[in-house]
Design a protein around this nucleic acid. Structure first.
Length: 402
DNA sequence: CCTCCACAGGAAGCGCAGGAGT
DNA sequence: ACTCCTGCGCTTCCTGTGGAGG
């Protein structure tokens, strides 16, 4: 039996693991100077006792949006003024009511906001802001808010009622086409000021990774080529800086496990596999039941088909490993029966397919020539055996619970 | 050319849970 | 605490679409 001190004294390649956490806000953000300046310029009126314009920030995941905004907010609150900000992630606060409630709670910590109606909370907030506070409401992942039009209307209209102080909004989202889905009046109010975060390029990722590696690991641990490799792997299919940092973290853990004090290409390669399956596991196991079943059916059929083609033709070519929509639906029905779930209708199954495609778990193509009728050809995006394992495991847990 | 096939995806409606209004 | 309302997940029904086959 090992003791805690054994574990604590275990040699490690890390000097500060927190640096590699996705929530860490570094002192300096490389390649985001212009973006940060723009954000600062947009909130600075609050420090001069004026109402800042609303702002809307968008860009793909891992491009440093949230990080940059947080960075600015830290500097912002270092200044003494009657300006305040409330930061919230709309995954948690996903309705007008919850957002207003959160604002009230932040502004009036003593207030027990539970049980109050929307109007009451709104009054409380207005009363407090009316004392002259310039409030900036930061809504991260703002696309998660269900009644966003109502929320934006409420918050912007609040300014008309205020004789002193103001409320402005800073929205963040990673859905690039999100603007189109807004009502016209909220579009014009939220997008008074907007900016786009472009994905990091391979060379930018390289120096970000290098910076973090320097801060997070003991000197000389990380191979230069390992840094280049993790940057290259990331740039290849996303430009998502968080992925690169995950790679680095995992590579470090692998090195610790193996009891070595070097991180080379090999550790990064192994980390990639591990991180990818982690991501797949996360994505799949949080899926609603029936989407998992559809995915399982696709995995089963993909394996069956692979076997058959290999037996009959002998070619290992997977060009023909497409599945038709109807085929998969039948497979889904049998899988659902096996797990004692009432099957969903074919119409809804098609929606599931769309969701799965959105999440990148499958890819679909419209059937072109050579196919009878019009259908979608489906191909799975992850190794079928992995998918089978994850889904089956998930369902065995669910079944053993009842 | 027309018809049929094998679907895609829009529209309408239904039952339910939870939130708002009283 | 009560009803009323609304959003959501889902089904049913329907029209549209692109190629195959006669």
């Amino acid at each position: 039996m090992k003791s805690f001190s054994d574990l604590l004294n275990k040699p490690t390649v890390f000097s500060d693991r927190n640096v590699l956490s996705p929530h860490y806000v570094p002192g300096t953000l490389p390649f985001r100077d212009t973006e940060i300046e723009k954000i600062m310029a947009s909130v600075v009126p609050a420090l001069k006792n004026e109402r800042p314009h609303n702002m809307f920030v968008y860009g793909k995941t891992g491009t440093g949006k949230t990080c940059s905004v947080k960075h600015v907010l830290i500097k912002f609150s270092e200044h003494k003024s009657n300006a305040k900000h409330v930061f919230m992630n709309c995954r948690m606060y996903n309705s007008r009511y919850r957002v207003i409630q959160k604002i009230a709670k932040e502004l009036l910590p003593t207030l027990d906001s539970m049980g109050f109606g929307l109007a009451m909370l709104y009054e409380k907030v207005m009363e407090e802001v009316g004392k002259g506070t310039h409030l900036i409401v930061v809504l991260d992942e703002v696309d998660m808010v269900k009644d966003l039009d109502d929320l934006l209307y409420t918050l912007t209209r609040a300014n008309d009622e205020l004789k002193a102080g103001s409320i402005s909004i800073l929205g963040i989202t990673n859905r690039v086409n999100f603007k189109d889905q807004l009502g016209t009046r909220s579009k014009s109010s939220l997008c008074e000021n907007e900016m786009v975060f472009a994905p990091y390029t391979a060379t930018q990722l390289q120096s970000i990774v290098r910076q973090r590696a320097k801060m997070g690991f003991k000197p000389g641990v990380v191979d230069d080529s390992a840094i280049n490799l993790s940057a290259a792997l990331t740039a290849n299919d996303s430009g998502d800086a968080r992925y690169a940092l995950k790679l680095l973290l995992k590579a470090g853990e692998i090195a610790d496990d193996r009891g070595i004090n070097k991180i080379t290409d090999k550790e990064v390669e192994d980390a990639r596999r591990s991180v990818d399956t982690d991501i797949a596991f996360e994505a799949i196991s949080t899926l609603p039941d029936h989407q998992q079943l559809v995915l399982l059916a696709i995995a089963n059929l993909a394996l069956d088909k692979g076997k058959n083609t290999r037996l009959t033709t002998g070619t290992s070519d997977e060009e023909d490993s497409f599945l038709t929509s109807g085929e998969v639906y039948e497979g889904y029905c049998t899988v659902a029966r096996k797990h004692r779930k009432p099957r969903r209708s074919a119409r809804w199954y098609r929606e599931y397919l769309n969701d799965l495609e959105m999440l990148g778990l499958i890819t679909t193509v419209e059937s072109g020539a050579g196919m009878r009728g019009r259908t979608r050809l489906i191909r799975i995006g992850y190794p079928p055996t992995d998918v089978q394992k994850i889904v089956e495991k998930n369902f065995s847990i669910i079944e053993s619970k009842n």
